[in-house]
Write a protein that binds this DNA or RNA. Structure first.
Lengths: 243, 243
DNA sequence: CGGACAGTTGAACTAGCTCAACCATAGTGG
DNA sequence: CCACTATGGTTGAGCTAGTTCAACTGTCCG
């Protein structure tokens, strides 16, 4: 169950041989539910497990002294947000449930063993953290260069594309259980301004978001409006073939 | 020469055994100079070498369709900006010389061999890309949440701290050969506004920047003003001890 | 001496913020 | 079943940080 989820995640990053797959399938851990706003791993602590999202929606964020928050990333079912903690002594951001979520927890030590014994697995885990890096860069340009409606459209495009790749789109909509406040925390905007900007996007007819769902009516036009190019998500599995 | 530079870089990320060190010292490559604004690796291409900065100042950036630029990172002498390209088929950002710079170029294939034969080296290279990731996150919050003077102060603190750790500070100043326009490209601000903001910071007496140098008159107060905490730079070599 | 480039200044403009109120919905306890 | 409360969405009005555009200055370099 847990091994399968991990295998699915790694498979979309690159090929694996029979032995690798078998070793991955043996990975086990705990299944746990987290309530909305509950922390899964706290900033400043050293996590003892790695995470795979089963259902729900996670977020990585920091809280600033003045009370403001910055969300750095969202994680959908199937994502493995904290594989890289194998290598760091403590987190500088927190991982929490943006909505009620179920996750698999894999002991870090097991993961470290697996990566030591199966170098190919380590390669793919590394690659996943490079993809995450590219997403941070994209968020940096998005929040720094785009105007509110552009940035919001860009974020909608990203979430929709990722949900689609994970098979989570039904019809033309997907889960996006975020409040307008949380959208603001990701985009660097005020809740109030998110509200007005969303109304503006609604008027175009390209997208909508209500009751925790994202409705995509015209992806192409929205993507064009937001200058969104999905290449950075590396969903097409574009990687370097070395060996 | 080149091997030594690479060894120095890796050593600040973690310990290495005798054999690792010897293998690293054997690494060789080419020394090359790049003029201001010259690209070292272009977005969209697959690089065939990795880079170590010898002198000068590099930047990673993207150019947007509307002509605006976003700088994602700066690299000082001693830094190794593009080790991670071993794992990606093409770059989604460009690396260029912000000022006249000299760099070592190491063939990617050699680097891949080294990492395959010496897993500990791979660990440290991976760790370096995780530190880079943390810097992207910090830039994201900085550009999204701080006001212009705070963001600029934060950036000055980062550059000064890193220069200091690399032994590049003389007296109370270090090289920072950027135009105000380029500072704006990093912070998401207009050149004009950078100018006015810099004047404001000058008035506090904490910092100054002119003729390509950064003068730090009161780091503590500036850091406090910018809410700057150097932990994310991991200069103190804080890492997870697994093995 | 002239040209290019970086820094500086001013004035008008606008995107996004702040604050404060109000509305809609869903869950809770009586 | 309904009042009560909490939470999230919506609206308005005034404000401010940062932009835009255009001019001007200083400095370096050929």
């Amino acid at each position: 169950m847990i091994g399968q989820a991990f295998l699915d995640y790694l498979t979309q990053l690159g090929e694996l041989c029979e032995e690798d797959r078998n070793a991955i399938l043996k990975v086990d851990g705990e299944r746990r539910a987290f309530r909305r706003h509950e922390d899964i791993a706290k900033s400043g602590t050293q996590p003892s497990f790695s995470v795979i999202v089963v259902t729900g929606f996670l977020q990585r964020y920091v809280s600033r002294r003045d009370g403001s928050r910055q969300i750095h990333a969202f994680y959908l079912p199937g994502d493995a947000p904290s594989l890289e903690s194998v290598h760091l002594d403590c987190l500088d951001s927190s991982l929490s449930a943006a909505a009620h979520s179920e996750v698999f927890l894999i002991p870090i030590a097991d993961l470290a063993d697996l990566m030591r014994n199966r170098p190919r697995v380590q390669d793919l885990v590394w690659r996943s953290s490079l993809v995450q890096s590219a997403q941070y860069r994209e968020w940096l340009t998005r929040n720094s260069r785009l105007t509110a409606d552009g940035a919001m459209a860009h974020m909608f495009c990203e979430i929709y594309k990722r949900a689609d790749a994970a098979g989570l789109v039904e019809g033309n909509s997907c889960e996006m259980p975020l409040t307008q406040e949380m959208v603001g925390d990701a985009l660097g905007l005020t809740g109030v301004h998110v509200n007005r900007t969303l109304q503006h996007l609604r008027e175009t007819g390209y997208v909508d978001h209500h009751r925790g769902r994202l409705f995509m009516h015209d992806f192409d036009r929205l993507a064009n409006f937001a200058d969104f190019d999905p290449a950075y998500l590396r969903l097409g599995n574009g990687r370097r073939s070395l060996n």
